[in-house]
Design a protein around this nucleic acid. Sequence first.
DNA 1: TGTACATCAGTGAACGCGCGTTCACTGATGTAC
DNA 2: TGTACATCAGTGAACGCGCGTTCACTGATGTAC
Lengths: 194, 194
Amino acid sequence: MRYPAAETAEKHQRILQEAARLFREQGFDGVSVGQIMQATGLTHGPFYNHFASKEALMAASTLHGSEHSRAALDAATGSPEAMRQYVRDYMSAAHRDAPGNGCLLAALAGDARKQPAVRPAFGIHLQSIIGKLAAHFPWRKKRNPRQDAIVMLSAMVGAVALARAVDDGALSDEILAAVQAAYAPTPPAPAPPA
Amino acid sequence: MRYPAAETAEKHQRILQEAARLFREQGFDGVSVGQIMQATGLTHGPFYNHFASKEALMAASTLHGSEHSRAALDAATGSPEAMRQYVRDYMSAAHRDAPGNGCLLAALAGDARKQPAVRPAFGIHLQSIIGKLAAHFPWRKKRNPRQDAIVMLSAMVGAVALARAVDDGALSDEILAAVQAAYAPTPPAPAPPA
DNA sequence: TGTACATCAGTGAACGCGCGTTCACTGATGTAC
DNA sequence: TGTACATCAGTGAACGCGCGTTCACTGATGTAC
């Protein structure tokens, strides 16, 4: 049957949003088109009214997740302390335990490698994140902030990926704590008001 | 038909070896049991004479790859310069472009997260690598070598994973170079004979 | 040493299953008059 | 404003396919005598 025209765009966004969450939680291959449509409250049929293929959805949902992640980082570039808090949140157990709402890079780097349709969007996203981190890098000597930003981002992404892959909870916590201590140590005393 | 008894153990090893290579190249879900058996020169049937299931092979091949990786690291713990060369090799384009012969952690961290059968072996491997790196960590202040080792390993694993996920060759090279420069800068002059 | 037979890894057809994708059909919405 | 009809997103059965796994069968090897 025909449906109110205004709902179509909203459903498109819901599919994108659920796909971005499920893909980060379970990987591209770990989620079926049917599961995504079920998460939006529809049957699998009308999926192809919105996207040409699962591959096209993977690419589109990567772009969608990219915008979300960049917005979160933008909100943290206001002050050095906000950037440190961003790193602390990134290295938190909460982020490790909720990949569906977390960083695209940490959740899908391994999958993106094998998905030609996703690689371009993934690269553009990575460039954007590195640029922002380098521009607001508040740590250590800033002789080469872009290099420092790449090393820090690699450590953050790698640490979260490893922490998620391990059953040993103590080891997982230790990995998060090590990178957090290296890049965003908790201040020894309450910071003075800026 | 019956086959020479000595060949059975050798075929078992060949299956493990091909599986370890293919899984790292294409991920656990990206390789079928049939492809693995074909790579060993057999049909898919006798797979179940060697392993109880694909899941069991994934776990066994992770252990197999773990031994291989640990041997490579052990060979580098002899001197600080050997360790630096290990890091340089790890951050090389050759390693990025040949995941099948490369680091288990960088190739399969994302996949291991979703495979309950693999997680225990993965964690044990990671513990072992961290321990060896910490014991032979030749860089910077050694106030907390284990923490330094975790941060370095996270950066190496994350950088290779990101470098592999990106189409932009210049960005990919830059990521590798940044982490290499941070942890194993090329010596400015030829090293004096030890 | 030579012969008869039991063993068992390899073969390849077949299974059930879930996947991505297609399509004839439905029926409330939006439009023409 | 009221009625008749064309539109088209949603429905759900169906498709072909590749997957992991099973199994009746094969036939050279190793063993018993």
